[in-house]
Design a protein around this nucleic acid. Structure first.
Lengths: 209, 209
DNA sequence: TGCTTTCTGTACCGTGCGATACAATAATAG
DNA sequence: CTATTATTGTATCGCACGGTACAGAAAGCA
């Protein structure tokens, strides 16, 4: 049963090609969910922002709930990943966490995007009535905890004078961003959040005098 | 212009008396909003849970949004106040914060009530499209920060060996509960939250060896 | 005993919701 | 070319939504 190969093993899509880019459409959907919440985001608002018609949306993403799940992944891959860049760029643990907090504040209060975080507020709110979404979020949170843990553990000996375990430290740093996102959406100013982040940095990475 | 007083200065209500207790009805509304979110809580579900008909609800609370604002205040006066009892009962700052965290975890994971927190998740989510609600939440958060600050400042000299300012300490303790509520709603277990709270307690109130 | 006032229950309004039926269109396969 | 496959735009479906009109009921006032 050897498959007959003509000249190209790539099988091109058969029917009419999709006229829009899925990721760009998802980016637009992210903004709508982020601002209006899951229930508050109507299909009319979504299709309008995405620049496509309803049947195209349903063909590409299934239904509203599945679109939301895709939007969560897209959000994590874009905004979420951006906040993590501090850990890739900064070798010093204390400074890395400091910049992780700063990046979180930037994301939470950026002009042109809604306040707070799609995952921490919108998706978490919707998770109460959706066990599958809840376990997805639970998994994502664990992944974040572990990613920070690995990063802190890899650089621990070089700079961290405290005896905090990397796992605990990572969970606490992650938790600080939860409060940043919550407080941002509830109207906190940049100064307030920056002060809060600095307090936590000082407490999580105590400096020798 | 002296008001004519017959024999009772209390003026009794005129028409047909209300057949339900407003606070009990609000308690039921709190549960519905808490579980389903603001947009997800339909008037049908609310009236069913409250045990009253629609016109009674509108006469007593205005409309859905105003009912939600009342429910937020009711939540703060009941569940929120309960979490604060640790500060009233426990004289030692470290132990008070420890029990504040425990009470928050209890509230976030209690059987018979939804996960997380009505204010931190549901109301905060809805605040993005409601500036008035957002400033209400902002004010409530500040009130909480200040209440904890006053309590910590009043007992600071007796037990806290660190040089953390009460204001910063209070905001951080408050922030820890934000993460507890977020993680609880996203499916975290009691063990995970307890461990997290203990880590923060150790870091916020470092013990002399 | 009316009269006034307020709440209660039923039944309903107009609207916006998520989702889809259907025919036209644009690509590939042979 | 014809046949096949998938997406597109229009127009619409049934339904649940928030909110209300209205008449009857239960209280105080005179």
């Amino acid at each position: 049963m050897v498959a007959k190969v003509t000249d190209q093993t790539v099988n091109r899509p058969r029917g009419r090609p999709r006229s829009f880019n899925q990721d760009e459409a998802l980016d637009a959907a992210v903004l709508v969910f982020w601002e209006r919440g899951y229930k508050g985001a109507s299909m009319a608002a979504l299709t309008a922002a995405m620049g496509i018609n309803r049947p195209s949306l349903y063909a590409a993403f299934g239904n509203k709930r599945e679109l939301f799940l895709h939007a969560i992944d897209r959000y994590a891959a874009t905004y979420g990943s951006r906040a993590f860049s501090a850990f890739r760029l900064e070798p010093n643990n204390r400074k890395a966490v400091e910049r992780f907090f700063e990046a979180s504040i930037d994301c939470a209060l950026a002009e042109g995007t809604p306040r707070g975080c799609l995952i921490n507020t919108v998706a978490t709110d919707a998770a109460e009535n959706d066990p599958e979404l809840r376990s997805k979020l639970s998994h994502m949170f664990e992944q974040t905890d572990e990613a920070i843990t690995r990063r802190l553990a890899a650089h621990q000996t070089t700079d961290d004078p405290s005896n905090n375990q990397p796992t605990e430290l990572a969970r606490m740093a992650h938790s600080v961003t939860h409060s940043i996102m919550t407080r941002a959406r509830a109207g906190a100013t940049r100064n307030e959040l920056t002060q809060l982040a600095q307090s936590f940095t000082a407490v999580l990475f105590p400096q020798p005098e």
